[in-house]
Design a binder for these strands. Structure first.
Lengths: 196, 196
DNA sequence: GCTACGGTGACACCGAGTATCACCTCCCCA
DNA sequence: TGGGGAGGTGATACTCGGTGTCACCGTAGC
């Protein structure tokens, strides 16, 4: 069998190289600015070829934002796990605690990366693209929960989208405070903004 | 004198060329797909040089989305013009009628462009970037209105962001219905999704 | 030991976007 | 009316991100 969960030596090596590349890249990006570091620089600094960098990360942005892809599915799973009697907005708020927890585990790294993303239009944009791709999954998860007469697609999409905006705005303010404010509190404040 | 409002012959010519380029481009994009039309193709089809195309529109995306820049400021102005006793959410909804009206004036063109944008990741992304740049102005407009104890920046930012999401989702569903549904109604439905 | 396969590097290539230069046209002023 | 300046255009060269291809090399498996 040894299906998808099997970790071969090759896969271990791949992950190690990938992590090394990302680390070298983050150092360079933070020091010189994302736009001033070419893929050639990065490859030279990491001791690999340009081809290899592009093979590990499809785009330059994904060197920074590669980890983001997994979060969307995690949030959708968390959303499905919320009690059915919870209203959509409360359920979304709690589902996003997954992300808050990720930030809480390594605030320094999260802060550095967040600053880099917010300071770099290309990264900011790519981050939105990734989060935008979460929306259908969140909308679907909302559609499958709670009382029988569910709202229409427009309503559920808006709620999912607004929740993601709350997350981003809370994170942006958290970064602006140099991580001194509490991210969960900021997220609560953001969510409260739409309970009119 | 003859300040910013003066329209010289040169400016008229510039606008005419710009409009011609955009028209030729839209035809090509819709026929062959945005990604399959290079700037060289476009320039040849319009009978100008590549340099000229790039000079009129800084990027290929802006050939399609050039008109979008003006909308943001219009919405912000409309928002400031709403009665002070209106709550933020209602005021935002009415401010967006400016955009609804633009769509209502030429539904066929709006529908074609919207379809193109939704079908082209690069355009969709660039559209978000432009709309995202409206947010500070909208947040500022919100901060200047209504009762004295105004909410914090997080709250106002979230409201502005959510309103833009409502607009986009309403427009997307309107396009999906081939323009048969009423955009204003869809926008109402979207806004209602967040009155919990 | 031989072979087949995955990872790598080294190209060549394309297209977007930037910068620069020469030319040309039109307008203004002498 | 002739000259000069300014703005628009085309041509060219360049950088860089991203794709595709090919040959090489190590390792795993027979």
């Amino acid at each position: 069998m040894n299906g998808a969960a099997r970790t071969t030596a090759r896969e271990v090596a791949r992950d190690a190289v990938r992590a090394m590349l990302a680390e070298v890249a983050l150092d360079l990006f933070r020091r010189d600015g994302f736009d001033n570091v070419t893929i050639n620089h990065l490859a030279a600094a990491a001791g690999v070829s340009r081809s290899t960098v592009l093979r590990y990360f499809g785009t330059k942005e994904d060197v920074v934002l590669g980890a983001l892809d997994a979060h969307g599915e995690q949030v959708a799973v968390a959303l499905r796990a919320r009690p059915p009697d919870e209203n959509d907005w409360t359920a979304l708020r709690h589902a996003l605690d997954i992300v808050v927890e990720i930030y809480r585990q390594d605030p320094a790294a999260a802060l550095a990366t967040t600053r880099l993303v917010l300071a770099t239009p290309a990264l900011h944009t790519r981050q939105w693209e990734k989060q935008h791709s979460w929306r259908p999954a969140l909308t679907q998860a909302l559609a499958e929960r709670g009382a029988s007469p569910r709202p229409g697609a427009v309503t559920l999409s808006v709620r999912a989208a607004a929740a993601l905006d709350c997350l981003n705005i809370a994170i942006a303010h958290w970064a602006k405070s140099d991580g001194t404010l509490n991210l969960a509190d900021l997220l609560d404040e953001a969510f409260a903004a739409l309970t009119l």
